[in-house]
């Protein structure tokens, strides 16, 4: 292990192990996500009945929704709760006592949080929607496997980028939090994130003219791009564009976050004590 990355990887590992302890929350999450997934499948099925040609066919959309439920915890809905507490108490300055880059420390924590939470939820949702649902009368509403090896491999690459992108968003939310000093920045971010990541309606179902913009905006990489790659709705050159969009936004957000945090921390005051 390179010593350059060692502190961050260690924080990541420890944090990941810690997050895996929250089993009750995870099970509650699985139940909620399965329930909402079923409702959204029903809604979209109702829309699809009797309509003509759509950019995604019904099995693709249904699978897309299940992916959305399985990877829900990947979305950067809220800043890091512990950092939120530290900001409110003014203890955030103490992070500066560690001989590490504070941005990448936060980034590593965020990554561990996103991946651990997702790891706890994705498996059970998959078992329910992909393995058990086909055995019932609602077999048409099941989560289908990728269309081929290429789609599967690209999906793995894309969902990995999603984790990195989502962590960059989370780190950015943490920084906004230092500025506004209220943990509710998440509420504002949530609406945006849900709509533009494709969680409300798959982005492919938005008007045709909006498609180039939708692919290249930062939120698409959080859900829509990997999900469309999985279902085969995004393949070949467009899939490559999707991955490029993800990489681009990871780089931009990390650079922005690192620059911003350095500015913020340089001016933070911790009075008293």
């Amino acid at each position: 292990m390179s010593t350059l990355a060692l502190p961050y990887l260690s924080v990541l590992r420890v944090r990941f192990q810690l997050m895996l302890q929250y089993r009750t929350a995870a099970w509650a999450g699985v139940a909620t996500q399965f329930w909402f997934g079923a409702i959204r499948v029903m809604t979209l099925v109702a829309f699809y009945v009797g309509t003509g040609q759509q950019p995604m066919n019904l099995p693709q959309v249904v699978t897309y929704i299940w992916l959305g439920q399985a990877f829900l915890a990947m979305l950067p809905w809220a800043p890091d709760a512990e950092i939120a507490v530290a900001v409110e108490s003014g203890n955030v300055g103490y992070e500066r006592l560690r001989p590490v880059d504070t941005y990448f420390l936060w980034y590593a924590r965020a990554l561990a949080w996103r991946v651990a939470n997702t790891a706890l939820r994705a498996g059970p949702v998959f078992i329910l929607a992909a393995l058990i649902l086909p055995l019932t009368a609602m077999a048409d509403w099941r989560w289908r496997l990728p269309t081929g090896g290429a789609a599967a491999a690209l999906f793995v690459a894309s969902i990995t980028l999603t984790a990195l992108l989502s962590s960059a968003f989370t780190a950015l939310l943490n920084i906004v939090l230092v500025h506004v000093k209220t943990p509710r920045v998440g509420n504002f971010a949530m609406g945006f994130t849900n709509l533009f990541s494709g969680l409300v309606i798959p982005l492919a179902l938005f008007p045709h003219w909006a498609q180039p913009f939708l692919l290249w905006q930062p939120f698409a990489g959080l859900a829509d791009i990997p999900f469309r790659i999985y279902t085969g709705a995004l393949a070949g050159a467009t899939a490559a564009q999707g991955l490029a969009s993800q990489v681009l936004w990871i780089l931009l957000l990390v650079l922005l976050g690192r620059w911003w945090l350095a500015r913020v921390l340089a001016h933070i005051d911790m009075q008293g004590g």
């Binding site: 060692l6 502190p7 260690s10 924080v11 420890v14 302890q21 006592l97 001989p99």
Partner: peptide, 20 residues
């Protein structure tokens, strides 16, 4: 400066890595 949820020795090991 330690981590509330971690056993002390794990905090120490984390510090070992953070301080390289």
């Amino acid at each position: 400066q330690l981590w509330w949820d971690l056993p002390v020795v794990e905090s120490f090991e984390l510090l070992r890595d953070i301080y390289r």
